[in-house]
Design a protein around this nucleic acid. Structure first.
Lengths: 107, 107
DNA sequence: AAAATATACCTTGACAGACGAGGTATATTG
DNA sequence: CAATATACCTCGTCTGTCAAGGTATATTTT
């Protein structure tokens, strides 16, 4: 069983930022890593991922650069900015509070 | 601070079903009760509530009947069905799993 | 008595995020 | 040489939330 789109919604950006806190990475890899981390319970579909990247960049939470691969397909790397780190803390606070609230309602 | 629409999404139906497990109730009251339960952290907007009612009824998870008020505005009551109880258990399982998964990702 | 607020129901249309389906290009494997 | 894996991307659809609007009755305030 895997996490539904409707539950995922609202967490995509936080999940990506969290991953970028560990290290810079690129779309394809982030996708695979998150699936692996969660035993395939959470899959960010490509279209979802790329639209989130666009929002995050627009917001100034991430920056991008091209990798210097000489072989294989080019990779667009993402790195989290200082604002991104702060935004992540807010996302996390929101999550902790939402989690407690929903837990309280779903007795 | 209150729960965002994007996080709420996917939980509305479960929240309503959970409330109806306690007792039959009507829209206006459910709205107030949920706000009170959560100190205004979770507010299901009216339009959101009514569209959820429609989905839940369509799915056979709730049934409705008119109250027998002789004074004041009429009330449309909702009650949870057996299928609704089963659906609730599934929502709850989904939530427990999603919660663990997201917790794992937002380190 | 008139105006405002609370109780109670409802609909319509806009918006935004997730995603299916499609596309491009390179490298490896059978 | 066809298939699969790696890697990027876009377009259009779908669905749930919600702002804004509406109706009607009862109570409270001015």
């Amino acid at each position: 069983m895997s996490i539904t789109s409707d539950i995922l919604r609202g967490h995509t950006e936080a999940i990506i930022l969290s991953h970028l806190l560990e290290q810079d990475s690129y779309g394809y890899q982030i996708n695979k890593d998150i699936m692996k981390k969660t035993d395939n319970r959470c899959e960010l579909k490509e279209a979802t991922l790329y639209s989130a990247f666009r929002r995050l960049e627009q917001a100034g939470y991430i920056r991008t650069y091209w990798g210097d691969e000489t072989v294989g397909a080019r990779r667009r790397y993402y790195s989290i900015t200082q604002e991104g780190r702060e935004a992540y803390q807010n996302y996390k606070r929101d999550w902790e509070e939402a989690k407690a609230t929903i837990d309280q309602l779903l007795k």
